[in-house]
Structure formats: structure tokens, C-alpha cells
Design a protein around this nucleic acid. Sequence first.
DNA 1: CTACAATACTAACGAACGTTAAGTAAAGGA
DNA 2: TCCTTTACTTAACGTTCGTTAGTATTGTAG
Lengths: 184, 184
Amino acid sequence: MTEKDLRERIKEVAVEHFDTNGYHGTTIRNIAKDVNCSLPMIYYYYKNKKELFDEIIKKEFFNLLKKQASLLKTDNIIDFYTKFIFDLNSLSNYDKKVYRLGIKVYLSFEGDEELMKLMDEWEKSILPRHREILKPHLKNVNNEKAIVRTLVHLLETMIENIVVKNRYLPEDEIREEISIVLKS
Amino acid sequence: MTEKDLRERIKEVAVEHFDTNGYHGTTIRNIAKDVNCSLPMIYYYYKNKKELFDEIIKKEFFNLLKKQASLLKTDNIIDFYTKFIFDLNSLSNYDKKVYRLGIKVYLSFEGDEELMKLMDEWEKSILPRHREILKPHLKNVNNEKAIVRTLVHLLETMIENIVVKNRYLPEDEIREEISIVLKS
DNA sequence: CTACAATACTAACGAACGTTAAGTAAAGGA
DNA sequence: TCCTTTACTTAACGTTCGTTAGTATTGTAG
């Protein structure tokens, strides 16, 4: 029965349900059924539905973001960003669903104010971080700020395509688009 | 009491609720309360909850898209796209919420398979349409396809920023980003 | 004035929800 | 051997949900 830690299994199934049916569309009963455990076991490991959801965003999603943000970068900036996006294609299904859920909260389609505040803080860190990465490569351009902004916007859509819409983006298409922005 | 058509008022309040709380988080009772009518009146004008939601997407959202897509275009392509995006800032609150709901369905965060299919069809029409618009302006470039794709991706993020995240995007920032892609 | 449709309401249905009370089974240290 | 802790169960609580049956009110055409 306890092939895997039950607490973990509950979370995995919960990700599935929250992703497919949304917070309000997800029921503890259905999670318990899929986990093949009794209903109160969910409450044994998690205080309530909201805490289960929060743990997924706060731990799973932000861990994913941090792991992704700490990727080593190559000296070729276009290679770096291409790889950064392309690797999302091979994220595990679980990670993709966690990511998807996170974006849902990021777009304020779900979650409460507390989670939204976490997202806002994260968002504020995005532009400066990429500006730092791109700084050495954008020395002799006058519209550096706009280029960074455009690139970040472009990255966002590509992430959404892969993670949210579950599309496969080929490496050369990613490279083409990034090049268009960075070689302007 | 009947200052405005009740059927219409129900739909307006429904947009508000679906937008804020999602499909499953929205209750007919709360809609009725905000409309200040009795609960069964909702069922008098709409078959059920799903039909109310569907009408918002099928009629309101797609009308909005069509209206937007039929905008007259200027001879300057950068002006055209800048205006196209910038004008979203001054969409009415109701239209913004309808748009937001539509994007939610577009990203398959909500709605059933039928609605998703409508979205897929719409999505397929996007690239060819912009390719047609851009064709005369991208004659002597070899990566025309990639540029169109990049532009559409960029437009998507800007739309999301304005409509979904409810940010104000200044005209010059929009113009800068579009120029970066189109002048490459 | 009357009859009949359209519009509105009160009240309630059964089902499903989040959550918890209360108890059992197993395990491990004293 | 007893006792405490951990892991788990059945059963039920009260609430709210979508939906509808049944009835009253209103507007209007004859």
C-alpha cells in the first residue's frame, strides 16, 4: 500500500486535479479516490484544501522556478536562451503541471492575495535579472532596455506555449525568434 | 426595476463573477444576488450555468475578437500594430473582463472541449492573417515566417499584460518592442 | 374588462461539498 | 506487558450547490 510516501502521492494527484479542474473544480473526495486512500487521510497530512494548494505553489512551483533560474549560462547568449526555453519541452509531466498551475496564479486566474504577492515579487525580479545577463552583450546599443523587455516578453509567450498549451517548440524556431530580437 | 434588459444585466454580472471566481467558483445564487433578482430568473433566461458561460465566450468574446481584427490599417505597419495594441488600454471594463475570460479558455484553463475547439480554429487563423498583413512590408527578407511568428508571440504577451494582468502599456514602449521585431 | 402570455417569485429537491468526530489497527519503546 | 504514538478507517455533520415545481404578478391584445 505504502509504495511511496502517501503525503507525496496526495500532492501529485492534487496537482493533476487542480491543473485539470481548477481550485474550485477540484474536490478532496476525487483526490482521495485517485490516490486510493480514505478521504480523511488528506486532512491527516494537510490542514485543508487551501493548504494543499498553497504548498504546491509555494514549494513545488517556486522550486521549479529557482532551479530554472540557476541554470549555468554559456558564453553565447543566443545559445543560452535557446537552451533555456528548449529544455522546457522535456520537463516531466508533473513539473509541467506544476508550472502550469503557477502561471495560472501568476495571471491571477487562481489563488488568493498572498500568493499573488509572491508572484508580484518574483515578477519584479525578472527584468533586472535578464538585464544583468544581457548587459555585456548589449554594450553598443541605445535601446538596451527595450530589447531586454522585448526578449522577456517573447520568452514568456514561448514558455506559455510549451508549458500551458503543451506544444512542442522546435529548437530552431526558438533560436530564430530569439535571434530576431537580440540581433536587431 | 427593469432599467435595463434583465437578461443582459445577468450576463454582465456573470462576466464579473466568472472572471473573478472562475467557472466552478461562481454560483448562480451570487449572480442573482448581485443582479438583485430571484434565483430562478437566471434559469428563465439561460438554460443552465454552462449555457450562460458559453454565451459569454461564444458571443461576447468572439465578437470582441472580430471587431478588433477588422480594424482599419494604416499604411505604416508599425503605427498599425502599435495602435492595435495600445487601444486595448482603453477597452471598457466589461470588454476587458470578457477578453480575460476568453484568454482563460484559450489557455484551456477553463471551458470544455467544444469551446477549446473554437479557440483552436481561431488560433489557426492568426498566423496567416498577420502574414497577409505583413507580406508587402517584408519583401526583401529571408526569414519572413520567423518574423511573423515572433511578432505574433510578442503581440500575445502585450495583450496579456494589458487585458489579463490589467497593466497599462504606454504607446512608446509598445512601439519600441514592435519596432525591434519588424526592423530586424 | 377579460383572457392569456410573459415575467417574476417562494420554496424546496437531491446531490455534493469541506470538514471532523470517534474509533480501530499496527508498531515500537518502556 | 502496557502504553503511547502513528497511520488509517467508517460515518456523519452542517452547508451550499445546481436545478425545478408551483404560484403569483404584470403587461397587453381582443
